Amino acid sequence: MKNFEERDSEDYLLLSGILHFAFCKRRWALIHIEQQWNENSLTFSGRLMHKNADNPHLTECRGDIIITHAMPLVSHSLKVYGVADVVEFQRNNTGVELEKFSGFWNVIPVEYKSGKKNSFGSDEVQLCCQAMCLEEMFETAIQHGFLYYGKTRRRFEVKFDDDLRKRVTSLVAEMYHLFEEGITPPAVYQKHCDNCSLVDICLPQLSSKKHAVDSYLESAILR
């Protein structure tokens, strides 16, 4: 495993931001550019779900599987850093070598979510970004990982194919563009906005109406 100094990533974006960005670019900008945050029942339950996963001192050995919690991550090619909920090392004939453990091990990222699988693909994007960090850190190839949902108590396999990897790279590049320009995208109201913890800050319905009025006035002036 490569040795990364903390200072190496001090100017990088948070990896966890890609989850918000894939779900709603405005939400990401409110949090990461404008530094705004608000708690609701969904975010609170999410923190409870991560309580054990985020214990950096907890390492478990279960036969041919080593389970590490809250592993620091960084990718210098993507310029992101963060923490993985859980990384499993599964004994195999090929893979990486680990300090204090003999043999070879496959690297498998596992992300815990309190709710259920959504249709935005944001969870898969976050997990793939974690895998890309781990690939760079361990100089290995990672083919798949897992998402565990607390509401359904089910674990889903995610395959890191070319399309998913390209989406990660594209989203990170767009995140950097907005961050460097200080751009917060305008609000576009959708049904899932009502469950967002930032709905009272974002005001998507009001912003969408204002945008419609501005567009109408602009078109009227140009007539």
Rank of each mutant, 00 (worst) to 15 (best):
Q90C: 14
H192A: 13
A173W: 00
M137S: 06
A84Y: 12
F138H: 06
P186F: 07
N38M: 05
L14P: 06
N92W: 09
I201N: 06
G145C: 05
E34W: 05
K113V: 05
F44R: 14
K79Y: 06
I142G: 03
H20K: 09
L178C: 14
E174I: 02
G115T: 12
V158H: 07
P56Y: 00
K100T: 04
P56K: 02
G121Y: 12
L30Q: 06
E124V: 02
P204S: 09
D8F: 02
R91L: 15
D11E: 14
G150L: 10
P56D: 00
A22R: 03
P186H: 13
N55A: 15
L198R: 02
H144S: 15
F156V: 00
C128M: 12
Y148G: 04
I108P: 04
A220Q: 14
M175C: 14
R165C: 15
Y149N: 09
D54H: 13
S16H: 10
L206D: 05
S114C: 14
E5T: 00
G150F: 08
N195T: 05
M49G: 04
C202D: 01
Y112V: 15
L217R: 12
D8C: 06
Y216R: 11
Q190I: 11
D123R: 01
L147Q: 06
A141I: 06
E135I: 04
S41N: 12
S75I: 08
L222H: 10
F160E: 08
I65E: 11
I67K: 04
R91S: 14
V107R: 07
P109F: 06
D11M: 15
D200G: 09
V96F: 04
